[in-house]
Write a protein that binds this DNA or RNA. Structure first.
Lengths: 187, 187
DNA sequence: CGACTCATGTAAGATGTTACATGATTGT
DNA sequence: ACAATCATGTAACATCTTACATGAGTCG
């Protein structure tokens, strides 16, 4: 299970409440790496606190509690990240599954799915690039968290886009027919 | 849940037994898209059979049953793939999570993790390229299944590799120090 | 005939998701 | 005052993983 380590990682950058972490998951981590709702996060924070890996450092207005990692928490996070990648990282990626299953569709349907993927990835990549270019490179603090990951997101999304166009071309070669030619989206 | 659709997709290309599907997951789908062990697959095949989406088309030697998709199964698969991507595809990707958490490590530790990632992705990409180049392009049948997905795997892995090198360079810029410089792996 | 792979399953426990629930504060 | 957002939780259900279990063929 990676959720506790995801939480340790976010808290290691900056203390936060369960609520704030939930938002963070929605915006960033959950979109590309590991999703979790508040109903997983709150109990997990309590477990981490029991294990002494995080602690409540502040109690705010609406019964909110701000958590921070302890020294042990930091050590645990480091251990986990530096550990041999334990066999292999478990992957569960629905978009990629859809790519696999494309082979099971007839060419016209596959083209349609690819067209939507290309559209979608183009939009996503553009959004991520904007995010990168808008934010002045704050190397530390919450804003800078995932700066490296953001760049990965851009590259991975762009790769998916390029692939979708390439796959469409392959299909066109193998099964030519009358169909709208998709246009490459300029980067 | 995507497992039933993953199974439908594999069976849509070619009928197979639960055992064969399990192997297929280990080799291909499970490594990059959606993992599942035989203890998930067998019960799911039974459920799919009850729902009339697959059927047993042959009974073999050791009590083995070969399943094939029915017309309804094919329709369901098509529906699922062409459906609006239902909000967003759920992603659970431990390697990417590790990339996110890198920001929580000190530069030397982060460099070490990146070094291993670069090594790992270089090896993976090379293996995938070999796979692609060895297999004569059989467009149909089991061998060709995931041919498009294979290309995606290559591109995604290569992107991860390039990113790891880029990230290392960024760290070196921001925190110069005495450390072994990683070499780019030629493709 | 012994070891290995093929082939399928059940059960317990861990994990994750959805629905339900509640109350405090802020903005209009 | 009303709506929206902040903030946390429980319970039921679905799902996934790990361990356990069994037997039939195949190869040397």
């Amino acid at each position: 299970m990676s959720l506790p380590h995801a939480l340790l990682g976010l808290l290691a950058v900056e203390p936060a409440s369960g609520y704030a972490l939930t938002k963070e998951f929605e915006r960033t981590v959950g979109r590309y790496a590991w999703q979790a709702g508040h109903t997983s996060i709150y109990p997990e924070l309590n477990r981490l606190a029991e294990r002494g890996l995080v602690e409540v450092v502040e109690e705010g207005p609406r019964g909110s509690r701000t958590y921070a990692v302890t020294a042990e928490g930091r050590a645990e996070l480091r251990r986990w990240l530096l550990l041999p990648p334990e066999g292999r990282g478990r992957v569960r990626n629905e978009p990629v599954l859809r790519m696999f299953l494309l082979s099971a569709l007839d060419p016209d349907d596959a083209r349609e799915v690819l067209r939507r993927m290309a559209e979608h990835t183009a939009r996503d990549a553009e959004q991520l690039r904007e995010l990168r270019d808008r934010a002045p490179d704050a190397l530390d603090g919450r804003a800078g968290f995932g700066r490296l990951a953001l760049e990965y997101g851009i590259r991975a999304t762009q790769a998916a886009h390029d692939w979708a166009l390439w796959a469409t071309a392959r299909l066109d070669e193998a099964h030519p027919g009358s169909h709208p030619a998709p246009e490459a989206t300029p980067r």
